[in-house]
């Protein structure tokens, strides 16, 4: 049997750590804890967690500083736990290198789904030429996209965009990350490009603009390809 993935919980609230500890334990993970930013950085080096659940509001240093410090030497997945009111903090955290975020307060099922998505993406980092996500099959070498077996014709830019989303399947991609990856650094602020291309992609993938089931909008932050 595979070893239980080790998750580092970083939160200054004792009660939140308690429930996370119990929940993650029950879900088959090995939770370890830190209550400050410094402890968290230390734990990342010393205890080699497989994933970090990070609260942005820490008493000593900000969660974003923790991400930056950790990202210097490791790509281990980081999921940010944050309240809705600070959209800009979330974007900053994602830009600093966090892989995903979960909005407080959250249910257990949602949290566990996000943890699974991040762990899977991380483990499958060795490039897979074919990505399958939510009824879509993306064949990178062949530049081919099939929806339920049907070939979908995409322009090169549309394909690139879908590829970036698919590689992060299940996780959020910030506007900036998408723009830089597809259009280059010069266009990192041209959010209207995204709106247009995501609209076209949704149409071609048979997605309903009102209630999209493949490419979901995260207001103020970015897009997520639902797995």
């Amino acid at each position: 049997m595979q070893a239980r993935p080790r998750l580092l919980i970083v939160d200054d609230e004792e009660q939140i750590r308690l429930f996370l500890r119990i929940t993650l334990n029950a879900a088959g993970y090995d939770p370890i804890e830190a209550s400050t930013g410094r402890e968290a950085i230390e734990a990342c080096t010393g205890k080699k967690p497989d994933l970090v659940l990070l609260d942005l509001g820490l008493p000593d240093i900000s969660g974003i500083d923790v991400i930056r410090a950790v990202r210097v030497w490791t790509q281990l997945p980081i999921i940010v736990l944050s309240v809705r009111s600070d959209e800009s903090d979330k974007v900053a955290a994602l830009d600093a290198g966090a892989n995903d975020y979960v909005q407080k307060p959250f249910g257990t099922a949602e949290l566990l789904a996000r943890i699974r998505a991040s762990l899977r993406a991380h483990s499958g980092e060795t490039a897979d030429p074919v990505i399958e996500a939510g009824g879509l099959r993306i064949d990178i070498p062949a530049h081919e996209v099939r929806r339920d077996g049907q070939l979908v014709k995409l322009s090169p830019k549309e394909f690139d965009l879908l590829l970036v989303l698919a590689r992060a399947a299940g996780r959020v991609c910030t506007h900036r990350h998408l723009l830089e990856s597809v259009w280059g650094k010069l266009h990192r602020d041209d959010v209207q490009y995204l709106r247009v291309y995501v609209g076209q992609l949704r149409e071609k993938l048979g997605d309903n603009e009102g209630v999209p089931k493949h490419i979901v909008n995260e207001p103020g932050i970015g897009y997520r390809l639902v797995v």
Partner: peptide, 22 residues
């Protein structure tokens, strides 16, 4: 207010959903 009201709710929601689902 948003932070202080939500923090207890995180624990409460988390605990209750964990108890229901796990």
């Amino acid at each position: 207010v948003s932070h202080d009201l939500r923090t207890p709710l995180v624990s409460i929601t988390g605990a209750l959903t964990a108890l229901r689902e796990l």
